[in-house]
């Protein structure tokens, strides 16, 4: 099924990543009171192992916020950060210096602040996506995992894996404008269910089989 997409289709998905992550970057800027920028989104057709490599490799420990998208175009979404970056975010948000995700056990407040951050970012991504496509898209309550990339992201591939050995990954990177070694890098991964692509394209007036 993954070979059926045209360049135009992939451009549409790229634009979705652009709009969603653009809004999320704005939310994050407001939250942290510093300028956050966004890289041009990448839309890639990758096999599952390649997808894990995009997020740092299957064994790499990450902080990931996962949510299920319900409604007109169901799918899965992840926001993935390195434990170091997640710790920095939460320190800036809460002002509590002890917040960290590099060594368990984790502070309850750090976990709940990270969950809230994920909630805000994925929520603003999804809201803008719903507005853009004029579809009804509702996020589930986001769940947080601090674990290996493969263990976390493979959960989002379960629906898809029944149809294909490849995934279309709409990947967007958020970066701190200073570009220093302290910069913030966060990955959004949008993984629509197989049936959802056609609905997304139709909602935007694009016929996937032109």
């Amino acid at each position: 099924m993954m070979n059926e997409f045209s360049e135009l289709d992939l451009d549409v998905l790229k634009e979705i990543g652009n709009i969603g992550a653009g809004h999320a970057a704005t939310s994050l800027s407001l939250l942290l009171d510093r300028k956050i920028e966004m890289h041009v989104p990448a839309v890639k057709v990758v096999d599952f192992d390649e997808m894990m490599n995009l997020a740092g490799g299957p064994e790499e420990r990450v902080v990931a916020v996962y949510l299920r998208i319900h409604g007109d175009a169901p799918g899965n979404m992840f926001f993935v950060l390195s434990p170091m970056q997640a710790g920095m975010f939460v320190k800036q948000m809460t002002g509590v210096v002890s917040c960290q995700f590099t060594d368990p056990p984790y502070d309850d407040m750090a976990v709940s602040a990270m969950q809230e951050l994920g909630n805000i970012l994925t929520g603003s991504y999804l809201t803008s996506l719903a507005d853009f496509t004029n579809m009804n898209l509702q996020p589930s309550v986001p769940a947080l995992a601090i674990d290996m990339v493969g263990a976390v992201l493979s959960y989002g591939l379960l629906e898809l894996s029944q149809y294909s050995d490849q995934a279309i990954v709409v990947e967007t990177l958020l970066v701190d404008e200073t570009g220093s070694t302290q910069d913030i890098r966060g990955h959004f991964f949008l993984l629509p269910d197989p049936d959802s692509y056609q609905k997304i394209f139709t909602s935007l007036g694009v016929n996937a089989h032109d």
């Binding site: 599952f48 490799g57 299957p58 990339v149 263990a151 591939l157």
Partner: peptide, 23 residues
């Protein structure tokens, strides 16, 4: 061994798969 993948080895080689979650 990747996700949804399989392999065989004989000694002295070893088999490894990374990042198992629900798999």
């Amino acid at each position: 061994v990747g996700i949804a993948d399989m392999n065989f080895v004989t000694t002295p080689d070893m088999l490894k798969t990374s990042g198992l979650g629900s798999c």
